[in-house]
């Protein structure tokens, strides 16, 4: 197991190296010049040139790359063109809202989707099953921003249960923190609930046909015990895999949600950085997300061994 973890962590190095090269090249090959954008509409050519030199963009691409990687290896992500502050500090400022949103969404997904899937599997073919499957199709189909505005209209504007927009940090107290977070996480989790409930249902249905489920019933166990302790654990691997993939994809969803609910998180930061061609920030964000992605995959693989003793690394 330890050997496996070490191997996987070492494997992130080439992955991140390749991501670094690709993102660096793509940014410089796409149209749009950060210096022009920063200088504003009335700037002279000389001013733009001055900004470009100041940002170091007048050097050759190779020199820029070597310099960036050199700083990176010393833990320095560089300074943002647009926000005029170190990228590391920028990310640290914005990470709490996004992490809170992701975690809350994850909790909603697991707590709602897994029982939904198990119940649907257990009551296969009944109205309960049909209701879950209908919800699932609906959850897939509705765009995140439509659902977001819909929930804002109903729960924030009409019923006035939650604030319309914004984010309150955890330090401001647990109640405002949660009340600001609830609608955005719920909005974001609907598509994951739809996905995970579907997978959980299919996976549990398959396990319910296994011989050992019949053995469990013949021991005199109740339906609930058979479902939770025998069926669900054996069905867990596909479910965990999908949840893991979902977490990795959350980042993309967060971009839209943070715009709809006006949350100052990493999603918004990414959008702002892209729009202003803020190279150091974009590069750092992409590297960060790749790292998270690789780590989540490793956690999912490790969870296999915990869930199924037959799997050993």
């Amino acid at each position: 197991m330890a050997a496996f973890v070490i191997r996987r962590i070492l494997a992130t190095i080439p992955v991140l190296g390749m991501v670094a090269v690709i993102v660096f090249l793509i940014l410089r090959l796409t149209p749009g010049d950060p210096a022009t954008l920063l200088a504003g509409d009335n700037a002279t050519l000389a001013q733009i040139e001055e900004i470009r030199r100041h940002l170091g963009l007048d050097r050759s691409i190779v020199v820029q790359f070597v310099s960036w990687i050199g700083h990176l290896l010393r833990g320095d992500f560089g300074e943002s063109f647009f926000f005029k502050m170190p990228v590391a500090a920028l990310i640290a400022d914005r990470i709490q809202p996004t992490l809170s949103l992701a975690l809350m969404t994850l909790i909603f997904t697991i707590v709602i989707a897994v029982p939904m899937g198990v119940i649907a599997a257990n009551r296969r073919g009944t109205w309960v099953d049909h209701a879950v499957m209908t919800f699932s199709v609906g959850g897939f189909s509705i765009p995140v921003f439509v659902l977001g505005y819909l929930l804002i209209y109903v729960f924030a504007i009409r019923l006035n249960w939650f604030p319309v927009q914004g984010f309150k940090s955890f330090d401001a107290g647990i109640r405002p923190f949660l009340s600001h977070l609830l609608l955005p996480s719920l909005t974001l989790s609907v598509v994951y609930i739809a996905l995970v409930a579907r997978i959980a249902r299919a996976s549990v249905i398959e396990v319910l046909n296994e011989d050992y489920i019949r053995t469990a019933y013949s021991k005199g166990l109740t339906n609930r015990v058979v479902l939770t302790q025998h069926a669900l654990r054996n069905a867990a691997i596909p479910i965990v895999t999908v949840i893991g993939m979902g977490v990795a994809l959350l980042i993309g969803g967060a971009v839209v949600i943070e715009s709809v609910y006006n949350i100052p998180g990493l999603g918004r930061l990414t959008v702002d950085a892209v729009l202003s061609r803020d190279y150091p920030t974009i590069q750092a964000m992409v590297l960060l997300f790749s790292f998270i992605y690789v780590m989540i995959n490793m956690l999912v693989d490790l969870s296999y061994a915990v869930l199924d003793p037959r799997i050993r690394y």
Binding site: E210, D211, T215, H230, R233, P309, R310
Partner: peptide, 8 residues
């Protein structure tokens, strides 16, 4: 197949 594969 009659025994649960992931329980001792």
């Amino acid at each position: 197949t009659a025994l649960n594969p992931i329980m001792t």
